[in-house]
Amino acid sequence: MEPIISVKSLTKNYRLGKVDVPALRGVDLVVQEGEFVAVVGPSGCGKSTLLHILGGLTGPSDGQVCIDGNDFRLMTDADRTRFRRHKIGFVFQRFNLLPTLSARDNIAIAQHIQGNGFNPHRFEAITRMLGIEKKLHHRPFALSGGEQQRVAIARAVICEPKILLADEPTGNLDTENSQVVLDMLRELNRTFRQTVLMITHNPEAAGIANRVIHMRDGRIISD
């Protein structure tokens, strides 16, 4: 079966003034559909850069990235945006909800941007599973961190993305809420065979994944 994520010799350099700073120095990675992968490593090791490239938020400097059959080398910025809209769901450490919209609208806007219209059955199933059906009329400032992250997860998966990319999803949560969010991600992976790639510092969080990748200095050092 063709892997959902296939990365070969991926490099990414950032330019700071006149100096090129390498963030990724030749990453090879293959992820099959339905896997729950945790990427761990110290700050600055390139985890977030890898996640941003896989999500199409930024392009690679060199190497091959193929997601669900889409070769990033052949895609323009607009193509990557379209790809992200249909194939990728993001969960961020800082939740990144739109502060002026209610929880319901924060979730619904993802469906609106995707352009397939509001799917009430999917919406109900997801919000019930994440236990936020009674909080849908609240705006983010009226929700706890855990609730905000659950709304963010709902937004990320409402459009049935092929891959859920989670960037330190428990980084801003206490232990109890962290466990709830991790359980939700695990549940999504099990129930919907949702492919999840999660970045974390937390070894306990990484422990719920069925595969843990370690990174250092822009390279994968163990898989």
């Binding site: 945006t81 809209r85 502060p99």
Partner: peptide, 16 residues
């Protein structure tokens, strides 16, 4: 800026 980033992460196009 951050909200625009959020919309972009959701796949909002430049036209949007």
């Amino acid at each position: 800026t951050r909200e625009i980033g959020i919309l972009k992460s959701l796949g909002a196009s430049k036209t949007y």
